[in-house]
């Protein structure tokens, strides 16, 4: 009886082994690059702004004052209270506009529409989300501005109302998209079970789907808020850009982001003014970081449960 003869096998590293390791290395670098970038950006803005914060101003100078006059040569003021109020009022109004719009749209797309309507609406909303913010700013400047002046009989149409509307319309598509994903993640068997019990479409949506999707919907809203805080160009163009504690929606304001965008080009690198703008950058970075992180944690909570 002859023993079976095996072909001699090689256990050396071959081409596949090398390709595998090169690919692993490349995707590893791509994967951790996000961490590298975020840490790098954080270090950069901290380096540029922290020196100013530590040496020249107190917490009270910054958060206790509403006067932002960094270019005054004798007694510059670095109070950002008015800027924070500007950003907050515009973002707040934007959310009042965007939340009902986006949740309503998401509910319609996910629960009440079907077929061609649903598909074309989804494409249109993606398109809407892709409109550059400068175009939105342009609309605020050239369409909403005269409209607000005429409708409400106010001297300036570039104000909280204008920017809030623009920002709300800007944030709504992305919020719709995320909210719709959250609704779609609710399994169909829940809907079928509730429908079999005689629930109407609205009852199914309101009593079963919305409670089941609430974390995802909250995440969508928070991402919209984050977008509102971070948006620059549209608010720069539509707020009127004047430092002001707003009393009503018809007051012009100035946003934190817009301040950086408008003034950074005029400052000397390393000057106090330059440092003050970077300090605003640190502040914005922290706010958006916290908002996005909590949105992410909340959405993750949905998937785990």
């Amino acid at each position: 009886m002859n023993p079976v003869e095996f072909a001699p096998r090689s256990f050396q590293r071959n081409r596949d082994w090398y390709i595998d390791h090169v690919v692993q290395g490349v995707v590893f670098i791509a994967g951790i690059s996000a961490i590298v970038f975020i840490v790098g950006i954080f270090i950069f803005i901290t380096k540029e702004g922290m020196g100013f914060v530590l040496e020249h101003v107190t917490f009270r100078d910054v958060f206790g004052s509403m006067y932002w006059e960094p270019s005054d040569e004798d007694a510059p003021d670095y109070g950002i209270l008015a800027l924070v109020a500007g950003t907050a009022s515009v973002s707040g109004l934007a959310m009042i506009v965007a939340i009902p719009f986006s949740l309503g749209a998401a509910i319609f797309i996910a629960e009440f529409s079907s077929g061609a309507t649903r598909e074309s609406l989804k494409v249109l909303i993606e398109l809407l989300a892709a409109i550059p913010s400068v175009v939105w700013g342009f609309i605020g400047l050239s369409i909403l501005n005269p409209l607000i002046m005429r409708l409400f009989d106010v001297p300036v149409g570039l104000n909280v109302l204008n920017a809030g509307l623009i920002l709300g319309l800007m944030a709504a598509p992305i919020m719709t998209s995320i909210a719709e994903d959250a609704l779609k993640a609710v399994p169909d068997r829940y809907r079928e079970a509730a429908e079999a019990m005689g629930a109407t479409k609205w009852q199914v949506t309101f009593r079963v789907v919305l409670p089941a999707a609430k974390n995802g919907l909250l995440g969508a809203v928070l991402l919209g808020v984050g977008r509102g805080f971070g948006e620059t160009m549209a608010v720069l163009m539509a707020t009127g850009h004047s430092v002001n504690m707003p009393d009503s929606v018809f007051d012009s304001v100035r946003a934190l982001t817009a301040t950086i965008a408008a003034e950074l080009g005029e400052t000397a690198r390393g000057s106090d003014h330059y440092g003050a703008l970077f300090a605003i950058g640190i502040f914005l970075f922290m706010i958006t970081f916290v908002i996005n992180l909590s949105a992410d944690l909340i959405v993750r909570g949905v998937k785990n449960s």
Binding site: V186, A193, A196, M197, G198, A199, P211
Partner: peptide, 20 residues
């Protein structure tokens, strides 16, 4: 049709506990 469905109880092959 909702009243009709309410008069018929349905039990599905796999238990569907509503998320409640």
């Amino acid at each position: 049709v909702y009243a009709l469905r309410r008069s018929i109880g349905v039990v599905f092959p796999l238990p569907v506990g509503l998320p409640l």
